[in-house]
Protein backbone atom coordinates (compact mmCIF):
# COMPACT_ATOMS: atom_id res chain seq x y z
CA UNK A 1 0.00 0.00 0.00
CA UNK A 2 1.18 3.48 -0.83
CA UNK A 3 1.32 5.37 2.47
CA UNK A 4 -0.49 8.60 3.28
CA UNK A 5 2.83 10.46 3.39
CA UNK A 6 3.91 9.14 -0.01
CA UNK A 7 0.48 10.02 -1.38
CA UNK A 8 0.87 13.61 -0.13
CA UNK A 9 4.27 13.91 -1.77
CA UNK A 10 2.92 12.53 -5.04
CA UNK A 11 0.03 15.01 -4.94
CA UNK A 12 2.53 17.81 -4.44
CA UNK A 13 4.53 16.62 -7.47
CA UNK A 14 1.34 16.48 -9.54
CA UNK A 15 0.43 20.04 -8.54
CA UNK A 16 3.67 21.39 -9.99
CA UNK A 17 3.23 19.88 -13.45
CA UNK A 18 0.96 20.79 -16.36
CA UNK A 19 -0.27 17.21 -16.76
CA UNK A 20 -0.92 14.58 -14.12
CA UNK A 21 1.01 11.88 -15.95
CA UNK A 22 4.19 13.99 -15.71
CA UNK A 23 4.42 13.07 -12.03
CA UNK A 24 4.74 9.35 -12.75
CA UNK A 25 8.54 9.29 -12.49
CA UNK A 26 8.55 11.37 -9.29
CA UNK A 27 5.83 9.07 -7.92
CA UNK A 28 7.85 5.95 -8.75
CA UNK A 29 10.87 7.45 -6.94
CA UNK A 30 8.74 8.30 -3.91
CA UNK A 31 7.03 4.93 -3.71
CA UNK A 32 10.19 2.94 -4.31
CA UNK A 33 11.98 4.87 -1.57
CA UNK A 34 9.34 3.52 0.80
CA UNK A 35 8.67 0.05 -0.50
CA UNK A 36 11.96 -0.88 -2.16
CA UNK A 37 10.43 -1.94 -5.46
CA UNK A 38 7.35 -1.54 -7.62
CA UNK A 39 5.14 -4.60 -7.11
CA UNK A 40 2.12 -5.45 -9.31
CA UNK A 41 -0.03 -4.20 -6.43
CA UNK A 42 1.78 -0.84 -6.40
CA UNK A 43 1.54 -0.64 -10.19
CA UNK A 44 -2.22 -1.12 -9.88
CA UNK A 45 -2.48 1.67 -7.31
CA UNK A 46 -0.33 4.00 -9.40
CA UNK A 47 -2.33 3.08 -12.48
CA UNK A 48 -5.48 4.22 -10.74
CA UNK A 49 -3.85 7.39 -9.51
CA UNK A 50 -2.55 8.31 -12.97
CA UNK A 51 -5.51 6.96 -14.86
CA UNK A 52 -3.44 4.55 -16.93
CA UNK A 53 -3.25 0.79 -17.22
CA UNK A 54 -0.94 -0.93 -14.68
CA UNK A 55 0.90 -2.48 -17.63
CA UNK A 56 1.84 0.99 -18.76
CA UNK A 57 3.26 1.69 -15.30
CA UNK A 58 5.36 -1.46 -15.53
CA UNK A 59 6.57 -0.52 -19.01
CA UNK A 60 7.94 2.70 -17.57
CA UNK A 61 9.46 0.83 -14.63
CA UNK A 62 11.29 -1.55 -16.94
CA UNK A 63 12.57 1.23 -19.21
CA UNK A 64 14.55 2.91 -16.42
CA UNK A 65 17.51 1.25 -14.72
CA UNK A 66 16.79 2.81 -11.34
CA UNK A 67 13.31 1.34 -10.94
CA UNK A 68 12.91 -2.24 -9.79
CA UNK A 69 10.05 -4.63 -10.39
CA UNK A 70 11.42 -7.25 -7.99
CA UNK A 71 12.26 -7.13 -4.28
CA UNK A 72 15.82 -5.89 -3.77
CA UNK A 73 18.73 -6.36 -1.40
CA UNK A 74 18.95 -3.67 1.29
CA UNK A 75 21.73 -1.79 -0.49
CA UNK A 76 22.70 -1.26 -4.08
CA UNK A 77 26.37 -1.02 -4.93
CA UNK A 78 27.25 -0.23 -8.52
CA UNK A 79 30.80 0.03 -9.79
CA UNK A 80 31.16 2.20 -12.87
CA UNK A 81 32.81 0.14 -15.59
CA UNK A 82 32.60 2.61 -18.42
CA UNK A 83 35.76 3.60 -20.28
CA UNK A 84 37.26 6.34 -18.06
CA UNK A 85 36.84 4.15 -14.95
CA UNK A 86 38.03 0.99 -16.74
CA UNK A 87 41.22 2.79 -17.77
CA UNK A 88 41.87 3.29 -14.06
CA UNK A 89 41.21 -0.22 -12.82
CA UNK A 90 37.45 -0.33 -12.29
CA UNK A 91 36.97 -3.78 -13.76
CA UNK A 92 39.66 -5.26 -11.56
CA UNK A 93 38.04 -3.64 -8.54
CA UNK A 94 34.65 -4.97 -9.56
CA UNK A 95 35.91 -8.53 -9.73
CA UNK A 96 37.70 -8.15 -6.40
CA UNK A 97 34.50 -6.92 -4.79
CA UNK A 98 32.54 -9.82 -6.27
CA UNK A 99 34.97 -12.21 -4.62
CA UNK A 100 35.11 -10.24 -1.38
CA UNK A 101 31.34 -10.11 -0.97
CA UNK A 102 30.86 -13.66 -2.27
CA UNK A 103 27.85 -12.58 -4.29
CA UNK A 104 25.74 -15.11 -6.18
CA UNK A 105 25.30 -15.11 -9.96
CA UNK A 106 22.76 -12.29 -9.65
CA UNK A 107 25.16 -10.14 -7.67
CA UNK A 108 23.43 -10.59 -4.29
CA UNK A 109 24.95 -11.47 -0.95
CA UNK A 110 23.33 -14.42 0.81
CA UNK A 111 22.19 -12.27 3.76
CA UNK A 112 20.21 -9.91 1.52
CA UNK A 113 22.43 -7.02 2.51
CA UNK A 114 24.04 -6.00 -0.75
CA UNK A 115 23.39 -6.19 -4.47
CA UNK A 116 26.60 -5.61 -6.42
CA UNK A 117 26.40 -4.61 -10.05
CA UNK A 118 28.13 -2.47 -12.61
CA UNK A 119 26.81 0.67 -14.14
CA UNK A 120 27.58 2.98 -17.03
CA UNK A 121 29.24 6.38 -16.64
CA UNK A 122 28.13 8.13 -13.45
CA UNK A 123 29.81 11.49 -14.08
CA UNK A 124 32.77 10.93 -11.79
CA UNK A 125 35.38 10.19 -14.46
CA UNK A 126 38.27 12.05 -12.84
CA UNK A 127 37.75 10.31 -9.51
CA UNK A 128 37.98 6.77 -10.85
CA UNK A 129 37.54 4.06 -9.92
CA UNK A 130 34.29 4.81 -8.19
CA UNK A 131 31.07 3.20 -7.08
CA UNK A 132 27.58 4.31 -6.23
CA UNK A 133 26.34 3.06 -2.89
CA UNK A 134 22.58 3.69 -2.90
CA UNK A 135 22.48 7.44 -3.57
CA UNK A 136 26.01 8.17 -2.41
CA UNK A 137 29.16 8.31 -4.56
CA UNK A 138 32.39 6.74 -3.25
CA UNK A 139 35.28 7.96 -5.36
CA UNK A 140 39.05 7.60 -5.80
CA UNK A 141 38.73 4.01 -4.63
CA UNK A 142 41.13 1.21 -4.03
CA UNK A 143 40.06 -2.19 -2.71
CA UNK A 144 40.62 -1.27 0.96
CA UNK A 145 38.70 1.95 0.71
CA UNK A 146 35.84 0.22 -1.08
CA UNK A 147 35.74 -2.56 1.54
CA UNK A 148 35.57 -0.01 4.34
CA UNK A 149 32.69 1.79 2.66
CA UNK A 150 30.80 -1.50 2.36
CA UNK A 151 31.45 -2.49 6.00
CA UNK A 152 29.51 0.57 7.11
CA UNK A 153 26.35 -0.72 5.47
CA UNK A 154 23.80 -2.40 7.72
Amino acid sequence: MISEQARARIDEAISKLPARRGALLPALHIVQEELGHISPETARELGELFEIHPVEVMEVVSFYNMFYAEPQSRHHVYVCTNLPCSLRGARVLYEQLEAHLEVDENGNTADGRIHLGHEECLGACAYAPMMRVDDRYCEDLDLDKAKRALEELE
Binding site: R21, L24, L25, E59, M66
Partner: peptide, 26 residues
Protein backbone atom coordinates in the same frame (compact mmCIF):
# COMPACT_ATOMS: atom_id res chain seq x y z
CA UNK B 1 10.47 22.54 -11.13
CA UNK B 2 13.28 20.06 -10.50
CA UNK B 3 12.57 16.52 -11.73
CA UNK B 4 14.81 13.50 -11.46
CA UNK B 5 15.51 11.00 -14.19
CA UNK B 6 15.87 7.33 -13.40
CA UNK B 7 18.89 5.95 -15.22
CA UNK B 8 18.54 6.03 -19.00
CA UNK B 9 21.20 7.66 -21.18
CA UNK B 10 18.74 8.36 -23.97
CA UNK B 11 16.85 10.81 -21.75
CA UNK B 12 19.73 13.24 -22.41
CA UNK B 13 18.56 13.51 -26.02
CA UNK B 14 16.21 16.44 -25.85
CA UNK B 15 13.04 14.79 -27.12
CA UNK B 16 13.70 11.61 -25.13
CA UNK B 17 13.97 13.95 -22.17
CA UNK B 18 10.63 15.56 -23.02
CA UNK B 19 8.93 12.17 -23.16
CA UNK B 20 10.45 11.24 -19.82
CA UNK B 21 9.32 14.53 -18.33
CA UNK B 22 5.81 13.62 -19.38
CA UNK B 23 6.04 10.39 -17.40
CA UNK B 24 6.72 8.05 -20.30
CA UNK B 25 9.51 5.87 -21.59
CA UNK B 26 12.29 8.18 -22.77
Amino acid sequence: VVTRGAGAYICGEETGLLESLEGKKG
